[in-house]
Design a binder for these strands. Structure first.
Lengths: 256, 256
DNA sequence: CACTGGATTCTCAGGCAGTGAGAATTATTC
DNA sequence: GAATAATTCTCACTGCCTGAGAATCCAGTG
Protein backbone atom coordinates (compact mmCIF):
# COMPACT_ATOMS: atom_id res chain seq x y z
CA UNK A 1 0.00 0.00 0.00
CA UNK A 2 2.56 2.53 -1.03
CA UNK A 3 1.36 6.01 -1.80
CA UNK A 4 2.63 6.11 -5.34
CA UNK A 5 1.84 9.78 -5.77
CA UNK A 6 3.85 11.82 -3.33
CA UNK A 7 1.32 14.48 -2.54
CA UNK A 8 0.20 15.61 0.85
CA UNK A 9 -3.29 15.97 2.22
CA UNK A 10 -3.12 19.66 1.63
CA UNK A 11 -2.14 19.27 -1.99
CA UNK A 12 -5.10 17.06 -2.51
CA UNK A 13 -7.50 19.37 -0.78
CA UNK A 14 -6.33 22.20 -2.98
CA UNK A 15 -6.75 20.03 -6.05
CA UNK A 16 -10.27 19.25 -4.95
CA UNK A 17 -11.17 22.88 -4.40
CA UNK A 18 -9.57 23.84 -7.70
CA UNK A 19 -11.70 21.32 -9.52
CA UNK A 20 -14.68 23.62 -9.20
CA UNK A 21 -15.12 26.69 -11.32
CA UNK A 22 -17.87 28.81 -12.78
CA UNK A 23 -18.78 26.14 -15.33
CA UNK A 24 -18.50 23.18 -12.99
CA UNK A 25 -20.19 24.26 -9.81
CA UNK A 26 -21.00 20.78 -8.69
CA UNK A 27 -19.47 17.39 -9.31
CA UNK A 28 -20.16 13.83 -8.29
CA UNK A 29 -17.61 12.30 -6.01
CA UNK A 30 -16.64 9.86 -8.74
CA UNK A 31 -15.93 12.68 -11.20
CA UNK A 32 -14.08 14.58 -8.54
CA UNK A 33 -11.90 11.58 -7.78
CA UNK A 34 -11.19 11.15 -11.46
CA UNK A 35 -10.38 14.78 -12.15
CA UNK A 36 -8.14 15.14 -9.13
CA UNK A 37 -6.58 11.72 -9.58
CA UNK A 38 -7.39 10.60 -6.07
CA UNK A 39 -8.45 7.02 -5.26
CA UNK A 40 -12.19 6.78 -4.86
CA UNK A 41 -12.20 5.60 -1.27
CA UNK A 42 -9.85 8.37 -0.28
CA UNK A 43 -11.87 10.94 -2.16
CA UNK A 44 -14.94 9.95 -0.20
CA UNK A 45 -13.09 10.28 3.06
CA UNK A 46 -11.71 13.71 2.20
CA UNK A 47 -15.03 14.95 0.90
CA UNK A 48 -16.86 13.91 4.01
CA UNK A 49 -14.22 15.53 6.20
CA UNK A 50 -14.41 18.78 4.23
CA UNK A 51 -18.19 18.70 4.19
CA UNK A 52 -18.20 18.46 7.96
CA UNK A 53 -16.33 21.75 8.04
CA UNK A 54 -18.64 23.29 5.46
CA UNK A 55 -15.73 23.80 3.12
CA UNK A 56 -17.66 21.62 0.73
CA UNK A 57 -21.40 21.03 0.55
CA UNK A 58 -23.30 17.90 -0.29
CA UNK A 59 -26.35 18.65 -2.34
CA UNK A 60 -29.53 16.57 -2.03
CA UNK A 61 -28.76 14.88 -5.35
CA UNK A 62 -25.44 13.62 -4.04
CA UNK A 63 -23.21 16.01 -5.91
CA UNK A 64 -20.58 18.14 -4.23
CA UNK A 65 -20.02 21.87 -4.38
CA UNK A 66 -18.05 24.50 -2.55
CA UNK A 67 -19.38 25.35 0.88
CA UNK A 68 -20.16 28.59 2.61
CA UNK A 69 -17.27 28.35 5.04
CA UNK A 70 -14.72 28.64 2.26
CA UNK A 71 -16.29 31.79 0.97
CA UNK A 72 -16.64 33.12 4.48
CA UNK A 73 -12.97 32.62 5.24
CA UNK A 74 -11.95 34.41 2.09
CA UNK A 75 -14.53 37.17 2.35
CA UNK A 76 -13.77 38.13 5.92
CA UNK A 77 -10.30 39.42 5.36
CA UNK A 78 -8.90 38.78 1.93
CA UNK A 79 -7.07 41.76 0.47
CA UNK A 80 -9.09 41.25 -2.70
CA UNK A 81 -12.29 41.86 -0.79
CA UNK A 82 -11.17 45.00 0.97
CA UNK A 83 -9.84 46.35 -2.29
CA UNK A 84 -13.12 45.55 -3.96
CA UNK A 85 -15.10 47.18 -1.17
CA UNK A 86 -13.09 50.36 -1.36
CA UNK A 87 -13.27 50.43 -5.14
CA UNK A 88 -16.94 49.72 -5.57
CA UNK A 89 -18.22 53.32 -5.49
CA UNK A 90 -15.65 54.41 -8.05
CA UNK A 91 -16.34 51.48 -10.32
CA UNK A 92 -20.00 52.32 -10.03
CA UNK A 93 -19.30 55.84 -11.19
CA UNK A 94 -17.34 54.69 -14.22
CA UNK A 95 -20.03 52.20 -15.06
CA UNK A 96 -22.74 54.82 -14.70
CA UNK A 97 -20.97 57.19 -17.09
CA UNK A 98 -20.07 54.84 -19.93
CA UNK A 99 -22.45 51.92 -19.37
CA UNK A 100 -19.75 49.51 -20.51
CA UNK A 101 -17.96 46.60 -18.86
CA UNK A 102 -15.91 48.01 -16.03
CA UNK A 103 -13.22 45.97 -14.32
CA UNK A 104 -10.92 45.99 -11.35
CA UNK A 105 -7.89 43.72 -11.41
CA UNK A 106 -4.60 43.03 -9.68
CA UNK A 107 -1.41 41.18 -10.56
CA UNK A 108 -0.95 37.84 -8.90
CA UNK A 109 1.61 35.19 -9.66
CA UNK A 110 2.57 36.90 -12.93
CA UNK A 111 -0.98 36.98 -14.17
CA UNK A 112 -3.86 39.40 -14.23
CA UNK A 113 -6.57 38.45 -11.76
CA UNK A 114 -9.97 40.08 -12.18
CA UNK A 115 -11.26 41.12 -8.78
CA UNK A 116 -14.55 42.71 -9.83
CA UNK A 117 -16.45 43.24 -12.99
CA UNK A 118 -19.52 45.36 -13.51
CA UNK A 119 -21.38 44.46 -16.66
CA UNK A 120 -23.71 46.76 -18.45
CA UNK A 121 -26.85 46.69 -16.38
CA UNK A 122 -28.93 45.58 -19.31
CA UNK A 123 -26.60 42.97 -20.67
CA UNK A 124 -27.96 39.48 -20.32
CA UNK A 125 -24.62 37.80 -19.86
CA UNK A 126 -23.55 38.42 -16.33
CA UNK A 127 -21.79 35.13 -15.80
CA UNK A 128 -19.29 35.87 -13.11
CA UNK A 129 -16.06 36.50 -14.93
CA UNK A 130 -14.75 37.55 -11.58
CA UNK A 131 -11.68 35.60 -10.42
CA UNK A 132 -10.63 34.99 -14.00
CA UNK A 133 -6.93 34.97 -14.87
CA UNK A 134 -5.28 36.15 -18.06
CA UNK A 135 -1.71 36.72 -19.28
CA UNK A 136 -0.33 40.12 -18.37
CA UNK A 137 0.99 41.11 -21.77
CA UNK A 138 -2.22 40.51 -23.69
CA UNK A 139 -4.49 42.99 -21.95
CA UNK A 140 -4.22 46.67 -21.17
CA UNK A 141 -5.03 45.98 -17.50
CA UNK A 142 -1.90 43.88 -17.34
CA UNK A 143 0.46 46.18 -19.23
CA UNK A 144 -0.54 49.18 -17.24
CA UNK A 145 0.31 47.44 -13.99
CA UNK A 146 3.49 45.84 -15.28
CA UNK A 147 4.76 49.21 -16.45
CA UNK A 148 4.60 50.56 -12.93
CA UNK A 149 6.38 47.75 -11.15
CA UNK A 150 9.92 47.83 -9.75
CA UNK A 151 12.44 47.05 -12.52
CA UNK A 152 13.37 43.62 -11.18
CA UNK A 153 9.75 42.49 -11.32
CA UNK A 154 9.58 43.46 -14.98
CA UNK A 155 12.85 41.66 -15.70
CA UNK A 156 11.59 38.56 -13.92
CA UNK A 157 8.47 38.60 -16.01
CA UNK A 158 10.41 38.71 -19.25
CA UNK A 159 12.62 35.88 -18.07
CA UNK A 160 9.67 33.70 -17.20
CA UNK A 161 7.72 34.59 -20.33
CA UNK A 162 10.04 34.62 -23.30
CA UNK A 163 7.20 35.03 -25.76
CA UNK A 164 6.09 38.20 -23.99
CA UNK A 165 9.44 39.82 -24.74
CA UNK A 166 8.92 39.22 -28.46
CA UNK A 167 5.42 40.65 -28.37
CA UNK A 168 4.65 43.51 -30.70
CA UNK A 169 1.74 45.90 -30.51
CA UNK A 170 0.00 47.49 -33.47
CA UNK A 171 0.47 51.12 -32.52
CA UNK A 172 3.51 51.15 -30.28
CA UNK A 173 5.86 48.40 -31.42
CA UNK A 174 7.83 46.25 -28.98
CA UNK A 175 6.70 45.62 -25.45
CA UNK A 176 9.51 47.67 -23.94
CA UNK A 177 8.56 50.62 -26.11
CA UNK A 178 4.97 50.10 -25.08
CA UNK A 179 5.78 50.01 -21.38
CA UNK A 180 7.87 53.16 -21.70
CA UNK A 181 5.00 54.89 -23.44
CA UNK A 182 2.61 53.79 -20.70
CA UNK A 183 4.94 55.16 -18.04
CA UNK A 184 5.05 58.47 -19.94
CA UNK A 185 1.33 58.76 -20.59
CA UNK A 186 -0.03 56.99 -17.55
CA UNK A 187 -2.50 54.75 -19.32
CA UNK A 188 -2.88 51.99 -21.89
CA UNK A 189 -5.39 51.72 -24.67
CA UNK A 190 -5.37 48.69 -26.94
CA UNK A 191 -7.58 48.10 -29.95
CA UNK A 192 -8.80 44.68 -30.86
CA UNK A 193 -6.68 42.63 -28.47
CA UNK A 194 -9.56 40.86 -26.73
CA UNK A 195 -12.07 40.89 -29.54
CA UNK A 196 -12.20 42.59 -32.88
CA UNK A 197 -14.02 45.87 -32.71
CA UNK A 198 -13.43 46.41 -29.00
CA UNK A 199 -10.95 48.60 -27.23
CA UNK A 200 -9.55 47.96 -23.79
CA UNK A 201 -8.49 50.98 -21.79
CA UNK A 202 -6.84 50.83 -18.40
CA UNK A 203 -5.14 53.03 -15.83
CA UNK A 204 -3.06 52.00 -12.83
CA UNK A 205 -4.08 52.50 -9.22
CA UNK A 206 -1.08 53.61 -7.22
CA UNK A 207 -0.08 52.69 -3.71
CA UNK A 208 0.40 56.34 -2.95
CA UNK A 209 -0.88 59.50 -4.53
CA UNK A 210 2.50 61.16 -4.84
CA UNK A 211 5.96 59.89 -4.06
CA UNK A 212 9.26 58.70 -5.41
CA UNK A 213 8.53 55.05 -5.99
CA UNK A 214 4.95 54.71 -7.04
CA UNK A 215 3.91 51.18 -7.73
CA UNK A 216 0.68 49.99 -9.28
CA UNK A 217 -1.35 47.89 -6.90
CA UNK A 218 -4.34 47.46 -9.18
CA UNK A 219 -5.87 48.59 -12.44
CA UNK A 220 -9.24 49.95 -13.43
CA UNK A 221 -10.36 49.34 -16.97
CA UNK A 222 -13.27 49.52 -19.36
CA UNK A 223 -13.98 47.64 -22.55
CA UNK A 224 -15.68 49.81 -25.17
CA UNK A 225 -16.49 49.57 -28.88
CA UNK A 226 -13.66 50.81 -31.12
CA UNK A 227 -15.82 53.60 -32.46
CA UNK A 228 -17.06 54.60 -29.02
CA UNK A 229 -18.41 58.14 -29.24
CA UNK A 230 -17.16 59.08 -25.74
CA UNK A 231 -13.72 57.68 -26.49
CA UNK A 232 -11.94 60.93 -25.61
CA UNK A 233 -13.47 60.90 -22.13
CA UNK A 234 -12.50 57.35 -21.22
CA UNK A 235 -9.00 57.98 -19.90
CA UNK A 236 -9.86 61.12 -17.89
CA UNK A 237 -12.75 59.34 -16.20
CA UNK A 238 -10.61 56.29 -15.39
CA UNK A 239 -7.91 58.56 -14.03
CA UNK A 240 -10.37 60.25 -11.73
CA UNK A 241 -11.62 56.92 -10.45
CA UNK A 242 -8.08 55.69 -9.92
CA UNK A 243 -7.12 58.74 -7.92
CA UNK A 244 -10.28 58.53 -5.89
CA UNK A 245 -9.59 54.91 -5.06
CA UNK A 246 -5.96 55.59 -4.17
CA UNK A 247 -7.12 58.32 -1.83
CA UNK A 248 -9.72 56.04 -0.27
CA UNK A 249 -7.13 53.34 0.32
CA UNK A 250 -4.39 55.51 1.67
CA UNK A 251 -5.61 57.05 4.90
CA UNK A 252 -7.03 53.82 6.31
CA UNK A 253 -4.20 51.40 7.09
CA UNK A 254 -5.86 49.87 10.12
CA UNK A 255 -9.10 50.56 11.94
CA UNK A 256 -8.61 49.50 15.48
CA UNK B 1 7.25 13.47 20.83
CA UNK B 2 3.63 12.63 21.18
CA UNK B 3 1.14 14.91 19.51
CA UNK B 4 -0.72 15.86 22.64
CA UNK B 5 -3.44 17.73 20.77
CA UNK B 6 -5.29 15.36 18.51
CA UNK B 7 -5.95 17.65 15.60
CA UNK B 8 -5.18 17.02 12.00
CA UNK B 9 -3.28 19.16 9.55
CA UNK B 10 -6.52 20.29 8.06
CA UNK B 11 -7.92 21.37 11.41
CA UNK B 12 -4.87 23.45 11.95
CA UNK B 13 -4.98 25.03 8.54
CA UNK B 14 -8.58 26.00 9.13
CA UNK B 15 -7.69 27.44 12.51
CA UNK B 16 -4.97 29.47 10.84
CA UNK B 17 -7.28 30.81 8.18
CA UNK B 18 -9.96 31.54 10.75
CA UNK B 19 -7.52 33.60 12.75
CA UNK B 20 -7.82 36.40 10.23
CA UNK B 21 -10.81 38.66 10.08
CA UNK B 22 -11.71 42.19 9.11
CA UNK B 23 -9.99 43.61 12.20
CA UNK B 24 -6.93 41.38 12.05
CA UNK B 25 -5.89 41.31 8.45
CA UNK B 26 -2.30 40.48 9.17
CA UNK B 27 -0.51 38.74 11.98
CA UNK B 28 3.04 37.86 12.86
CA UNK B 29 3.83 34.17 12.81
CA UNK B 30 4.40 34.28 16.54
CA UNK B 31 0.94 35.74 17.18
CA UNK B 32 -0.58 33.29 14.78
CA UNK B 33 1.04 30.38 16.55
CA UNK B 34 -0.20 31.69 19.86
CA UNK B 35 -3.76 32.33 18.74
CA UNK B 36 -4.11 28.99 17.00
CA UNK B 37 -2.27 27.12 19.73
CA UNK B 38 0.22 25.59 17.34
CA UNK B 39 3.88 25.09 18.27
CA UNK B 40 6.03 27.80 16.78
CA UNK B 41 8.20 25.57 14.65
CA UNK B 42 5.15 23.85 13.22
CA UNK B 43 3.44 27.14 12.59
CA UNK B 44 6.39 28.29 10.53
CA UNK B 45 6.35 25.13 8.49
CA UNK B 46 2.62 25.35 7.79
CA UNK B 47 2.78 29.04 6.97
CA UNK B 48 5.58 28.57 4.49
CA UNK B 49 3.74 25.69 2.86
CA UNK B 50 0.55 27.72 2.58
CA UNK B 51 2.41 30.77 1.33
CA UNK B 52 3.92 28.69 -1.44
CA UNK B 53 0.39 27.98 -2.61
CA UNK B 54 -0.63 31.62 -2.25
CA UNK B 55 -3.25 30.66 0.29
CA UNK B 56 -1.38 32.94 2.63
CA UNK B 57 0.84 35.90 1.77
CA UNK B 58 3.99 37.09 3.44
CA UNK B 59 4.15 40.85 3.54
CA UNK B 60 7.46 42.72 3.31
CA UNK B 61 7.34 43.46 7.03
CA UNK B 62 7.19 39.77 7.84
CA UNK B 63 3.56 39.57 8.81
CA UNK B 64 1.14 37.09 7.30
CA UNK B 65 -2.20 37.66 5.61
CA UNK B 66 -4.64 35.76 3.49
CA UNK B 67 -3.51 35.17 -0.08
CA UNK B 68 -5.16 35.70 -3.41
CA UNK B 69 -5.52 32.02 -4.15
CA UNK B 70 -7.92 31.52 -1.28
CA UNK B 71 -10.17 34.28 -2.51
CA UNK B 72 -9.85 33.00 -6.04
CA UNK B 73 -10.94 29.50 -5.10
CA UNK B 74 -13.97 30.81 -3.28
CA UNK B 75 -14.86 33.46 -5.83
CA UNK B 76 -14.77 31.19 -8.84
CA UNK B 77 -17.67 29.00 -7.91
CA UNK B 78 -19.00 29.55 -4.44
CA UNK B 79 -22.78 29.60 -4.27
CA UNK B 80 -22.50 32.79 -2.24
CA UNK B 81 -20.81 34.51 -5.14
CA UNK B 82 -23.27 33.48 -7.78
CA UNK B 83 -26.13 34.48 -5.52
CA UNK B 84 -24.48 37.81 -4.94
CA UNK B 85 -23.88 38.35 -8.63
CA UNK B 86 -27.48 37.64 -9.48
CA UNK B 87 -28.75 39.80 -6.64
CA UNK B 88 -26.55 42.82 -7.20
CA UNK B 89 -28.82 44.74 -9.60
CA UNK B 90 -31.82 44.28 -7.33
CA UNK B 91 -29.90 45.31 -4.24
CA UNK B 92 -28.72 48.33 -6.17
CA UNK B 93 -32.30 49.26 -6.89
CA UNK B 94 -33.34 49.01 -3.27
CA UNK B 95 -30.33 50.99 -2.21
CA UNK B 96 -31.03 53.67 -4.81
CA UNK B 97 -34.60 54.11 -3.61
CA UNK B 98 -34.12 54.28 0.15
CA UNK B 99 -30.42 55.15 0.46
CA UNK B 100 -30.18 52.99 3.55
CA UNK B 101 -28.11 49.93 4.42
CA UNK B 102 -29.26 47.09 2.17
CA UNK B 103 -28.31 43.50 2.85
CA UNK B 104 -28.42 40.07 1.31
CA UNK B 105 -28.06 37.08 3.60
CA UNK B 106 -28.48 33.33 3.74
CA UNK B 107 -28.82 30.74 6.49
CA UNK B 108 -25.78 28.63 7.16
CA UNK B 109 -25.13 26.30 10.04
CA UNK B 110 -28.09 27.70 11.95
CA UNK B 111 -26.87 31.23 11.67
CA UNK B 112 -27.46 34.22 9.45
CA UNK B 113 -24.55 34.86 7.13
CA UNK B 114 -24.38 38.25 5.43
CA UNK B 115 -23.44 37.75 1.79
CA UNK B 116 -23.50 41.36 0.64
CA UNK B 117 -24.12 44.71 2.16
CA UNK B 118 -24.51 48.03 0.40
CA UNK B 119 -24.00 50.95 2.70
CA UNK B 120 -25.32 54.40 2.07
CA UNK B 121 -23.02 55.81 -0.57
CA UNK B 122 -22.13 58.76 1.63
CA UNK B 123 -21.60 56.89 4.85
CA UNK B 124 -18.00 56.96 5.95
CA UNK B 125 -18.04 53.57 7.62
CA UNK B 126 -17.93 50.99 4.92
CA UNK B 127 -15.86 48.47 6.77
CA UNK B 128 -16.78 45.22 5.16
CA UNK B 129 -19.47 43.75 7.36
CA UNK B 130 -19.82 41.16 4.66
CA UNK B 131 -19.36 37.57 5.86
CA UNK B 132 -20.59 38.46 9.32
CA UNK B 133 -22.63 35.92 11.27
CA UNK B 134 -25.47 36.57 13.68
CA UNK B 135 -28.05 34.47 15.53
CA UNK B 136 -31.15 33.73 13.49
CA UNK B 137 -33.75 34.71 16.05
CA UNK B 138 -32.40 38.17 16.77
CA UNK B 139 -32.72 39.71 13.33
CA UNK B 140 -35.52 40.03 10.86
CA UNK B 141 -33.34 38.57 8.09
CA UNK B 142 -33.08 35.43 10.16
CA UNK B 143 -36.71 35.08 11.21
CA UNK B 144 -37.99 35.61 7.72
CA UNK B 145 -35.88 32.75 6.43
CA UNK B 146 -36.54 30.46 9.34
CA UNK B 147 -40.28 30.92 8.90
CA UNK B 148 -40.09 29.53 5.39
CA UNK B 149 -38.06 26.41 6.12
CA UNK B 150 -39.33 22.83 6.18
CA UNK B 151 -40.87 22.06 9.61
CA UNK B 152 -38.08 19.74 10.70
CA UNK B 153 -35.49 22.45 10.19
CA UNK B 154 -37.44 24.77 12.45
CA UNK B 155 -37.80 22.04 15.07
CA UNK B 156 -34.08 21.32 14.92
CA UNK B 157 -33.33 24.97 15.45
CA UNK B 158 -35.47 25.13 18.57
CA UNK B 159 -33.83 21.99 19.91
CA UNK B 160 -30.37 23.37 19.39
CA UNK B 161 -31.21 26.83 20.68
CA UNK B 162 -33.36 26.52 23.78
CA UNK B 163 -33.18 30.23 24.48
CA UNK B 164 -34.61 31.00 21.06
CA UNK B 165 -37.76 29.10 21.92
CA UNK B 166 -38.31 31.35 24.95
CA UNK B 167 -37.74 34.49 22.93
CA UNK B 168 -40.48 37.09 22.94
CA UNK B 169 -40.96 39.93 20.54
CA UNK B 170 -42.44 43.34 21.40
CA UNK B 171 -45.26 43.37 18.89
CA UNK B 172 -45.99 39.72 18.17
CA UNK B 173 -45.26 37.75 21.33
CA UNK B 174 -43.66 34.32 21.24
CA UNK B 175 -41.40 33.19 18.45
CA UNK B 176 -43.87 30.63 17.14
CA UNK B 177 -46.54 33.30 16.93
CA UNK B 178 -44.04 35.54 15.20
CA UNK B 179 -43.09 32.90 12.66
CA UNK B 180 -46.74 32.19 11.93
CA UNK B 181 -47.37 35.87 11.38
CA UNK B 182 -44.40 36.07 9.03
CA UNK B 183 -45.71 33.13 7.04
CA UNK B 184 -49.08 34.88 6.80
CA UNK B 185 -47.79 38.31 5.88
CA UNK B 186 -44.64 37.36 4.00
CA UNK B 187 -42.25 39.71 5.73
CA UNK B 188 -40.71 40.68 9.06
CA UNK B 189 -40.25 44.11 10.51
CA UNK B 190 -38.58 44.53 13.89
CA UNK B 191 -38.07 47.76 15.77
CA UNK B 192 -35.02 48.36 17.88
CA UNK B 193 -33.57 44.85 17.82
CA UNK B 194 -30.18 45.81 16.43
CA UNK B 195 -29.95 49.32 17.75
CA UNK B 196 -32.40 51.65 19.41
CA UNK B 197 -34.13 53.86 16.92
CA UNK B 198 -33.59 51.57 13.95
CA UNK B 199 -35.93 49.17 12.25
CA UNK B 200 -34.91 46.04 10.41
CA UNK B 201 -37.20 44.92 7.60
CA UNK B 202 -36.69 41.74 5.62
CA UNK B 203 -38.42 39.56 3.04
CA UNK B 204 -37.54 36.03 1.97
CA UNK B 205 -36.22 35.08 -1.46
CA UNK B 206 -37.88 31.87 -2.57
CA UNK B 207 -36.38 28.97 -4.46
CA UNK B 208 -39.34 29.08 -6.83
CA UNK B 209 -41.81 31.76 -7.72
CA UNK B 210 -44.86 29.63 -7.19
CA UNK B 211 -45.22 26.08 -5.93
CA UNK B 212 -46.31 23.78 -3.15
CA UNK B 213 -43.20 23.79 -1.00
CA UNK B 214 -41.59 27.16 -1.23
CA UNK B 215 -38.47 27.48 0.81
CA UNK B 216 -36.50 30.61 1.53
CA UNK B 217 -33.00 30.47 0.12
CA UNK B 218 -32.01 33.98 1.10
CA UNK B 219 -33.31 37.23 2.50
CA UNK B 220 -33.15 40.83 1.40
CA UNK B 221 -33.32 43.46 4.09
CA UNK B 222 -32.88 47.12 4.87
CA UNK B 223 -32.13 48.91 8.08
CA UNK B 224 -33.96 52.22 8.40
CA UNK B 225 -34.64 54.79 11.13
CA UNK B 226 -37.75 53.98 13.17
CA UNK B 227 -39.44 57.17 11.99
CA UNK B 228 -38.48 56.60 8.36
CA UNK B 229 -40.76 58.70 6.19
CA UNK B 230 -40.94 56.10 3.41
CA UNK B 231 -41.71 53.34 5.90
CA UNK B 232 -44.87 52.27 4.11
CA UNK B 233 -42.94 51.67 0.90
CA UNK B 234 -40.22 49.50 2.41
CA UNK B 235 -41.94 46.12 2.24
CA UNK B 236 -43.39 46.56 -1.26
CA UNK B 237 -39.98 47.53 -2.63
CA UNK B 238 -38.26 44.61 -0.90
CA UNK B 239 -40.95 42.28 -2.25
CA UNK B 240 -40.34 43.47 -5.78
CA UNK B 241 -36.60 42.96 -5.42
CA UNK B 242 -37.12 39.50 -3.97
CA UNK B 243 -39.38 38.44 -6.82
CA UNK B 244 -36.97 39.85 -9.34
CA UNK B 245 -34.11 37.93 -7.84
CA UNK B 246 -36.10 34.71 -7.65
CA UNK B 247 -36.95 35.09 -11.32
CA UNK B 248 -33.32 35.77 -12.20
CA UNK B 249 -32.19 32.67 -10.34
CA UNK B 250 -34.81 30.29 -11.57
CA UNK B 251 -34.36 29.90 -15.32
CA UNK B 252 -30.58 29.42 -15.12
CA UNK B 253 -29.83 26.13 -13.42
CA UNK B 254 -26.74 25.36 -15.46
CA UNK B 255 -25.09 27.08 -18.38
CA UNK B 256 -23.25 24.42 -20.27
C1' DC C 1 32.12 45.57 15.10
C1' DA C 2 30.83 42.67 18.52
C1' DC C 3 26.48 42.13 21.09
C1' DT C 4 21.81 41.09 21.57
C1' DG C 5 17.20 39.71 20.91
C1' DG C 6 14.04 38.20 17.68
C1' DA C 7 12.66 35.98 13.63
C1' DT C 8 13.29 32.07 10.67
C1' DT C 9 14.99 27.78 9.10
C1' DC C 10 17.01 23.15 9.80
C1' DT C 11 17.64 18.64 12.01
C1' DC C 12 15.94 14.19 13.10
C1' DA C 13 13.98 10.23 15.32
C1' DG C 14 9.48 8.50 16.26
C1' DG C 15 4.46 7.94 16.24
C1' DC C 16 0.19 8.34 14.48
C1' DA C 17 -2.68 10.36 10.73
C1' DG C 18 -3.67 9.14 6.47
C1' DT C 19 -3.80 5.62 3.08
C1' DG C 20 -6.35 2.66 -0.29
C1' DA C 21 -7.82 -1.97 -2.01
C1' DG C 22 -11.44 -4.66 -1.03
C1' DA C 23 -15.46 -6.16 1.56
C1' DA C 24 -19.82 -4.75 3.29
C1' DT C 25 -23.73 -1.94 3.24
C1' DT C 26 -26.98 1.07 1.62
C1' DA C 27 -29.64 3.60 -2.09
C1' DT C 28 -31.41 3.40 -6.78
C1' DT C 29 -32.95 1.63 -11.05
C1' DC C 30 -35.13 -1.49 -14.18
C1' DG D 1 -36.23 -8.60 -6.53
C1' DA D 2 -32.19 -8.90 -9.05
C1' DA D 3 -28.78 -5.78 -10.74
C1' DT D 4 -26.25 -1.72 -10.44
C1' DA D 5 -24.36 2.23 -8.52
C1' DA D 6 -23.24 5.01 -4.52
C1' DT D 7 -21.27 5.16 -0.09
C1' DT D 8 -19.21 3.59 4.06
C1' DC D 9 -16.28 0.41 6.74
C1' DT D 10 -12.27 -2.50 7.69
C1' DC D 11 -7.57 -2.78 8.65
C1' DA D 12 -2.70 -3.54 8.18
C1' DC D 13 0.92 -0.52 6.72
C1' DT D 14 3.83 3.52 5.99
C1' DG D 15 5.73 7.86 5.31
C1' DC D 16 3.97 12.54 6.36
C1' DC D 17 3.85 15.31 9.94
C1' DT D 18 5.52 16.42 14.29
C1' DG D 19 7.99 19.63 17.53
C1' DA D 20 11.84 20.53 20.77
C1' DG D 21 16.13 22.19 20.20
C1' DA D 22 20.12 23.72 17.62
C1' DA D 23 21.68 26.60 14.07
C1' DT D 24 21.32 30.56 11.17
C1' DC D 25 19.95 34.94 9.65
C1' DC D 26 18.86 39.73 10.55
C1' DA D 27 18.19 44.34 12.46
C1' DG D 28 19.25 47.45 15.80
C1' DT D 29 22.26 49.35 19.44
C1' DG D 30 25.96 50.83 22.06
Amino acid sequence: MTTSSGDTVLDRVLRILSAFDARRRQLSVADLAHVTDIPLATAYRLVSKLSAEDILTRYPDGTIGLGMRLWELAARSSPAVSLRTAAMPFLDDVQAIFRQHTQLSVLDDNEVLVVERLSSRNSVVNQATVATRMPIHTVSMGLVQLAFQPPHVIDDYFLAHANAAKMTYPSSGSITTTLAQIRREGFSMLDGMLDDGTTGAAVPVFNTLRGKNRTAIAAISVVVPEDFEQRAAVIPVLMAASRGLARALHPVPETE
